[in-house]
Design a protein around this nucleic acid. Structure first.
Length: 265
DNA sequence: AAAGCAGACAACCGCAAACTC
DNA sequence: GGAGTTTGCGGTTGTCTGCTT
């Protein structure tokens, strides 16, 4: 059985939002709060699908949004966070109060990409363009013909280990690795501190959303990793009392890792 | 003045995670 | 445990605006 459509497409508006639609959405959320996007359009008298309402609210109507141009500091922070997190726009947005993932994604594609290219830096790898080319050549050469003979299980294990190794080398939790990343991002403070769940986590808990106080490994897509200590109850318990522990890449701590604790020095 | 083009950004779409029953 | 539902994310597209020719 296929997935049910998110909305009744025949009876929904598409395209740009009108002032009246905006007003209706704002008024509804002011009196009822966020949540249950599926039923919101009908309840608010909007001919839009829930997804569209959510996007409009999050990206444009939310009162805490910071409109206007990005500052030079924000530019540099986005570049640094992108070099660490890749295209995890929602995580990057979480570090820039008042900015949305969509806004940052657009800004990246229209401004920062070009800026990095002008500097001779590959916006994907954050390495000098010529260095990137070398790396690609090496990669091409390194795959030999003997791979077929390798046991599949070993291959999978190696792949997992390699993935983990790459994450470790990028995300800095051991002394040597830290030195390396600090060379890449000298003014980014990667000290991890424990703090109560940030508003996104709290909202997610209320609405049963995806980002329940996950450990860092889970947020990086390593749910099956042996370094992941996050289980289905973790988010709930940690958000309720802030005392559950996590253990990622040798770093043990109580509470939930808060991406907002990555701060500029 | 108008056509063509490029940049900027709002909005849409498909997918997958997380949840409910 | 599995099917169906809801929500959020990231990639992509559509449209508006300003500039150039």
């Amino acid at each position: 059985m296929g997935r049910s459509p998110c909305c009744e497409k025949a009876h929904t508006n598409k395209g740009a939002w009108t002032k009246e639609e905006d007003d209706r959405l704002i008024a509804y959320i002011r009196s009822h709060g966020e949540g249950c996007w599926r039923s919101l359009p009908k309840a608010a008298g909007l001919l839009r699908c829930g997804k569209s309402c959510r996007l409009r609210w999050i990206n444009y109507l939310r009162p805490d949004l910071k409109r206007g141009n990005f500052t030079e500091e924000e530019d540099e922070l986005i570049i640094k966070l992108h070099s660490l997190l890749g295209n995890k726009w929602s995580l990057i947005a979480g570090r820039l109060p008042g900015r949305t993932d969509n806004e940052i994604k657009n800004y990246w594609n229209t401004h920062i990409r070009r800026k990095l290219l002008n500097r001779g830096i590959d916006p994907t790898t954050h390495r000098p363009m010529n260095e990137t080319n070398c790396a690609q050549e090496i990669t091409t050469i390194s795959f030999g013909s003997g791979a077929a003979a390798v046991n599949m299980k070993e291959e999978q294990q190696e792949e997992e280990d390699h993935k983990l190794m790459m994450i470790k080398s990028s995300y800095v939790f051991q002394e040597n690795d830290e030195k390396m990343v600090m060379e890449r991002c000298p003014d980014l403070n990667l000290d991890l501190k424990i703090s109560p769940p940030h508003p996104h986590q709290t909202d997610a808990l209320k609405t049963g959303g995806r980002n329940r106080g996950l450990c860092f490994a889970c947020s990086l897509g390593l749910q099956n990793s042996k370094d992941c200590s996050c289980n289905s109850n973790n988010g709930t318990s940690s958000s309720n009392n802030g005392t559950s522990g996590y253990d990622f890449l040798g770093l043990k701590a109580g509470g939930v890792l808060d991406y907002r604790s990555l701060e500029m020095k």
